[in-house]
Amino acid sequence: MSSEEQQQADETVVRLLGRREHSAHELRQKLRQRGYSESVIQQSLATAQQHGWQSDERYAEIWLRQMIGSGNGWMKIKAAAGAKGVAEELLLQLTEAADPDWVDLCFERLCRKFGEQPPETRQERDKIMRHLQSRGFRFGEIKAAMERQRQAE
């Protein structure tokens, strides 16, 4: 490993982190794509973490807040976390701290997408349920949100 290669890798990490937060997993992938050796990648990540430039916890917190804000439910968030390199234990801890009201979020998503009028036919209801499930909401949350919509009429 040359010191020049290490310096280039460190600069790449700083440049990537300057644009947005990244998980260590994402940075590792991006450095691999650029052809850096595993030892150079390890050293660059260690340097970034020692200086506080990169933090998986900070990344996960920001990412979770963004996912919840985008109207995603727990199941979708949990599935996407693995691909982002967010540890399940950390995700559970941050979700517990954020304490989102999943039924409220599901209801907001329902009203934003389909309006406040409850579905008139079974097909409309099924379409709404499929959409909310694809956004990661669980059946109980969907049922509660649709009941709230029905009562608000």
Rank of each mutant, 00 (worst) to 15 (best):
residue 36 Y to W: 10
residue 122 R to A: 13
residue 90 L to D: 12
residue 16 L to I: 06
residue 133 Q to V: 05
residue 28 R to I: 01
residue 148 R to V: 11
residue 123 Q to W: 02
residue 62 I to G: 08
residue 109 R to W: 00
residue 137 F to Q: 02
residue 89 E to K: 13
residue 49 Q to C: 06
residue 56 D to R: 02
residue 96 E to Q: 13
residue 139 F to D: 10
residue 33 Q to T: 14
residue 1 M to K: 05
residue 87 A to H: 13
residue 94 L to Q: 08
residue 119 P to M: 09
residue 106 C to N: 03
residue 57 E to F: 06
residue 95 T to L: 04
residue 67 M to Q: 13
residue 140 G to I: 04
residue 83 A to H: 13
residue 142 I to N: 01
residue 109 R to C: 14
residue 59 Y to E: 06
residue 86 V to A: 02
residue 74 W to N: 02
residue 132 L to A: 02
residue 38 E to L: 14
residue 139 F to I: 10
residue 119 P to D: 11
residue 104 D to F: 10
residue 19 R to I: 13
residue 5 E to N: 09
residue 19 R to P: 03
residue 138 R to C: 08
residue 91 L to K: 07
residue 51 H to K: 15
residue 6 Q to L: 15
residue 10 D to V: 01
residue 125 R to V: 08
residue 1 M to D: 10
residue 26 E to K: 09
residue 42 Q to S: 15
residue 48 A to G: 07
residue 110 L to N: 01
residue 153 E to K: 12
residue 22 H to V: 00
residue 13 V to R: 00
residue 108 E to D: 15
residue 118 P to C: 14
residue 107 F to I: 02
residue 56 D to K: 02
residue 72 N to W: 00
residue 74 W to M: 05
residue 29 Q to V: 14
residue 123 Q to M: 09
residue 113 K to L: 08
residue 55 S to I: 10
residue 144 A to M: 07
residue 93 Q to W: 08
residue 85 G to Q: 04
residue 8 Q to E: 15
residue 76 K to D: 07
residue 65 R to L: 09
residue 131 H to T: 13
residue 152 A to L: 07
residue 2 S to W: 10
residue 35 G to T: 09
residue 72 N to Y: 04
residue 150 R to T: 15
residue 81 A to T: 02
residue 152 A to F: 00
residue 115 G to Y: 08
residue 60 A to V: 01
residue 9 A to Q: 03
residue 121 T to Q: 04
residue 56 D to E: 11
residue 81 A to K: 01
residue 77 I to F: 01
residue 142 I to D: 00
residue 94 L to E: 04
residue 112 R to P: 02
residue 92 L to F: 11
residue 16 L to K: 07
residue 43 Q to W: 10
residue 108 E to W: 06
residue 136 G to D: 04
residue 80 A to K: 12
